[in-house]
Design a binder for these strands. Sequence first.
DNA 1: ACTTTTAGACTGACCAGTCAGATCAAAAGG
DNA 2: CCTTTTGATCTGACTGGTCAGTCTAAAAGT
Lengths: 216, 216
Amino acid sequence: MPSTAPPRGLPVTRRTSTRRRLFDAAVTLIAEQGFSATTVDEIADRAGVAKGTVYYNFASKNVLYEELLRDGIDLLADSLRRAADATAARGGTRVNALDAMIRAGLDFIACSPALIQLYVAELWRTNRTWRATLTSVRGRAQAVVEDVLRDAVRNGELSDELDIPLTASALLGMVLVAALDWQSFQPDRSVEDVHAALSRLLQGRVGAGPHRSEGP
Amino acid sequence: MPSTAPPRGLPVTRRTSTRRRLFDAAVTLIAEQGFSATTVDEIADRAGVAKGTVYYNFASKNVLYEELLRDGIDLLADSLRRAADATAARGGTRVNALDAMIRAGLDFIACSPALIQLYVAELWRTNRTWRATLTSVRGRAQAVVEDVLRDAVRNGELSDELDIPLTASALLGMVLVAALDWQSFQPDRSVEDVHAALSRLLQGRVGAGPHRSEGP
DNA sequence: ACTTTTAGACTGACCAGTCAGATCAAAAGG
DNA sequence: CCTTTTGATCTGACTGGTCAGTCTAAAAGT
């Protein structure tokens, strides 16, 4: 019987390295083909292990996928948080922090587009299977952005009419979609170009000015 | 042998109504479960049709899905275009037109979230299967936004330093993600709230002001 | 007349998950 | 040192079920 939890710290046992290889193989294949279209045999092949090893390390294909998502998105959230904290430490404004987070998001996606591709593919499924996992993971990523927005409102840097959750989700969406589009359809552009375009949008240099939306 | 193409105009034959029912059934099921996890039997059941009918109307499960995507996203593009044109006809600015498109996008997604859910789930797959279909469909939707941005730059309403394709994709992403998030995680909010939050972002009332991004 | 739909049995491929046995690495014993 | 032992880890053939797609003859729709 395998122990249910890996060792607390990170002693690089054979097991943890196998799990890592399985994660890597699975994230790529599933991003390419989708979860159901990817077979456990393919994952095992790509990871260079036998099929049985997959089931020794994970209770099921579903569990493998869940842990994969949790692991990956936590990494993204950490990276965003670090970017925001670093900016704060350097005495930047909150808007500067948001800008730094955009950059961190772009860098992250440039490194592991497959993971984010998975995330957006599954996040809004009405399916029950991974709802709990996905909701919690989404919450953690979203919270990082919301915290910075909240701070900015509190110290008067942004208007207190700002709708924090909606704005956070729009910002996150803007970054994720722009980055994936960049990777898929304009891979020749530099990360600086993409960052500049998003930055401009964030800092109100697109539709800026005293325009008012029409309406009743 | 079924004729390969449906009638040119739109005479509501028995056949076209069956195809419509199959599209509706398929889009919901696939959005819930994913393409591979959805069986042809389920689609037929949900549409209230025999399995053979599916294959009488579509060459394969794949083809059904392709036509479904093409059909649906064209509807979205049309709806965005109409919103932009209507604003122009009323003499609004281009930024007003973008704002109207945001609203049209939100309304569309409120009506058929499943379709957009499908679209974002598939769009960035590196998979070959539907790449051609998806690329062409994406191009059509993106072009609508780019056209308005281009016009706005041409007549001086927006800076000519604007990166049109990147900004278009960011705007589209912002709307799609915010709308899906709204439907899934905050369905109690009104469409007006969501529109207001996005509008504020578009019109530069979020990070507005003479901030400059940090960096070398 | 003809197109379209029905009901559902069937097949051949494919795949998640199992299990009995092989292999490894490190500790214990000599 | 060099065995032996032990438990953890890995292997891959096998099983039972599932599903896309086919095929039929008859019925229903236009």
